[in-house]
Every structure is written in C-alpha cells, then in structure tokens.
Design a protein around this nucleic acid. Structure first.
Lengths: 229, 229
DNA sequence: ATATAACGTGTATTTTTTACACTAAGTAAT
DNA sequence: ATTACTTAGTGTAAAAAATACACGTTATAT
C-alpha cells in the first residue's frame, strides 16, 4: 500500500463456485456465455465488482442475480491475478465458493444478457471452461476438501432434513474416497451437532432411513473444539 | 467475469505480513510511512501492483525491495476489498504472508521513499496500524495458526540448524499455548522430517542442545500423509 | 567444588482410529 | 402370503495416537 498515483486501471471481478448436491452427484453451477470474449463457452458465474460495493457485497449480489438466493454464506478463497488471465484488460478475480441446497425449487433466475443459460453440471464431467476458470475451480475444490474436515459444509449442501447416508455421500464425493459406514456414523454423531428426528425418509422403494437435522446452536457452542475428519 | 466496459478504475495492492522469529519472540516487519495518507503511521509493507506484473510477482518484488530477499516462499491468503479501506480511491489489497529467517545478516534494504524505516516488531505489542492493516494482520495470524498444523512453516522461520526447543518455541508462540516437551518431541520426530546432526548448539551458557536440520526431501515424500498438530 | 540452567528421556493410561459382517425393515413383484 | 431385493442400522476387538507426568544428565560460570 503506497502512493496512489500510478494504478487505477484494473478491474476486479468475482467468480463463484457454487456447489450443489442432487442426492447422488456433486455439481457446480455453470453459465454459457453470450458475449465476447469466450462467447458460447461455459464459465463460472461471475461479474465485475462495482465501484461502490465491497467485494463481499458484490459476491452476494452476483449470487442473487443468478439464483435469486440471498443470505447464503459464501466464503472467499483466493484472488487470481495473472497478467493475461483476461484477454481484454487487467482483471483481478476474487473467487468465492458457496454450498447450495439443490432440489425442489431452484429458480435459476432470469439471467442478465451475458449468459444464455445456467446449468448444474456434474463436477466429474465438466466441459472446457472460459478464462482460467478451470484453475479457479480446481483451487476451490482443494479448499473445500480441506475445509469440510473442520467446518459443517456438508449440511449446507443437504436439505434441512437428511439421512446419515446422504451426509456420508457428500463427504465421500468431496474427499474423493469411500468411507466406512459404521465408523463414519460413529464419528459424525460423536460431535453431537445432529438431531435425530422422529421422522423417516419418504418416497423411497426400500427401508426408509431416519432423518436428522443439523443443530446450528449446538455447533456454535463447540467453539474452539476441533471437528476433524 | 463479464462485460468489460464499466470497470477499470480500481487499483490493486499487495500487503505482506512477514513473520520472523528472533529466538524468543514472534515478530512482524512493519514500516513507518513517510507519505500521506497515514503519514508517520506504522503499516504493513506493501505496494501497488504494476500493470504488467502478476499479483504473485508483485508480492515477490515488494518483498525484495524491502528485504533484498528473493526466492522466499510467500503464500497469498486473502483479498481485502471494502469500499472505504483506502481513503484515496478504490484499492483492493491482496495479502500474503511469509516466514523469514531473522538473525545475523538482515539487511533491510534501503527503502524507497515511501517509508521512513522498517522494523521488526513483536507481534504481542504492536502499535496502531494504518488502513485496515490490523485486520489484515489478524487474518494472517489466524491463517498461519491453522496452517502450521499441516505445513512445515516453523522451519522457514528458524535458522538452518536449530534445536528442538526452538521448534517448540515457534509452535508455542504461533498457537498461543504451552506444549508438553516430551510429547512435542515425540510427535515432531515421528514425522521423520528432521535430521539429527552431529553438532551441538554453541555460545550458550548452559548445556548445549543437539542441532537438527529440516529434511525437505523427506518432507516432500510424505505427500498426502497429513502432518497434524 | 559447587551452583545453575536447560537438555534429554520413558511409561502407563486414556482416547481415538481402524477394520470388519450380519440382521432388520421396508418395498415390490409374483 | 411368500419371496426377492435393497438399504438401514448396529458392536467389538485391536491398533494407534494422545496425554499426563518428573528426574538424572551435561555443560557453563563462579
């Protein structure tokens, strides 16, 4: 931080890695661009930061414009600042991730003209992405791999009521490996942040599993104690 | 990432949290500003990113300008983007930390005119800082607290040859708590990344401790296995 | 010789992690 | 009603890791 004279010819953008879980697969939200550069390419949803909004506010605005959702917890995880990452000028991009509850009522709001459409895409089978977005996404994946070991990210991805098997699936997808069912349940229950409901899963063609809820209140009380997978 | 038209009126700066260890205390490098705004205040070393250098390159350049050191591993950890964080315009600051070996030959190069002087300051007794630098620093401290549990940051702070007690001191300072000597040694040696030397500490007025070296080669082979404190 | 200050070491206990497989419950088809 | 199918749900023993804890050793300084 020094003299001010030279700079002020940068743009700053936000790119969002929005994770979703459809019950089986880990997805991210991509848009198909309708403008140059990279017209017709798939890209992470993003936008330029306005002059009078903070970077965090900008991330919230962009999320809302795309999905209609507000009050979603987004976490900034890295700033991408290579000289040639944007073909039309010097653009620094600040990347955020968020975990969204898919399923049911995802509007995917009317998009601004810059995108033809938005779509949830399986993380395991992505198209080629515009700009350095593959790179941004990879770093995002790395981050949540680390953070899901300490933070209750999985529950943001799941519906309000969920089964333990679903929780396990989320961990397995993000960590990229199978976990032992009995040990997983023992561990996740040992944190005492899940509340067992009277209710069972419905609409499945086999034995219905017990539903659980994430108890935010109890989680907040853990404070300091480390959750660790 | 979208249309390009509106933006390009931002500046981007780097701020560096440079940690050092003098054998007793955890220090960071501060500069005393010689220019408005915040003339005469203490601040983190930093500077604006040039138009034709990447954010990472800029961090390296700034570090070199200040300390004469190159090839120091710096890690980006957060971008600060509040609207009013800089009184003279919209400046996004990307923060990096690095661990430096203090002691002996720290030149602290001739500073550019923007700083009157640079000085290592005990983290435990900091002056008021310019801009949002206290905030930037706090977040940096949080980050290394987490990361020192998984990454060999401590050895970057220590001289090439060090005693186990010194390693323990670094962990204690960063984690902010006392550790048990025997358990600490058992654990740190269990990772097998320290090489015991034939050599002993010199110039101390009590029993000299055995010196150790960090074995980067062995550390790199751990790959995947988690070091964890 | 003596005092001093940090060095260096081991064990027993508790906690956590891991490996591992079968019965129970519900649905669907015949 | 029986059967076949699919996932739910559960416990234990062994191994590994974490913790708590105290004293003789060695070098220096006086």
């Amino acid at each position: 931080m020094t003299e001010i004279t030279p700079g002020f010819d940068f743009a700053v953008s936000i790119d969002c890695v929005l994770f979703g879980f459809d019950g089986t697969e880990l997805k991210i939200l991509l848009i198909e661009r309708n403008e140059e550069p990279f017209k017709d390419w798939w890209a992470l949803p993003g936008n330029l930061v306005d002059h009078d909004e903070s970077v965090d506010q900008s991330a919230q605005r962009i999320l809302k414009e795309l999905t209609g959702l507000s009050d979603i917890y987004m976490e900034q995880y890295y700033a991408f600042g290579d000289v040639n990452r944007h073909p039309q000028g010097r653009v620094i991009s600040v990347a955020y991730y968020a975990m969204l509850r898919l399923g049911g009522d995802k509007p995917l709001k009317p998009l601004s003209s810059y995108a033809k459409k938005a779509q949830w895409v399986n993380v395991a089978s992505l198209p080629k992405l515009a700009f350095d977005h593959q790179n941004i996404l990879n770093k995002g994946l790395e981050k949540i791999k680390r953070r899901i070991k300490h933070l209750p990210l999985a529950f943001e991805l799941l519906p309000e009521k969920f089964t333990l098997t679903q929780v396990q699936s989320v961990y397995e997808l993000i960590l990229g490996k199978k976990l032992d069912k009995r040990n997983f349940r023992k561990k996740i229950l040992s944190f005492k942040v899940l509340k067992e409901l009277e209710e069972k899963q419905r609409g499945v063609s086999f034995r219905a599993a017990t539903l659980y809820k994430f108890d935010k209140r109890k989680y907040n009380k853990l404070f300091g104690k480390e959750i660790s997978f």
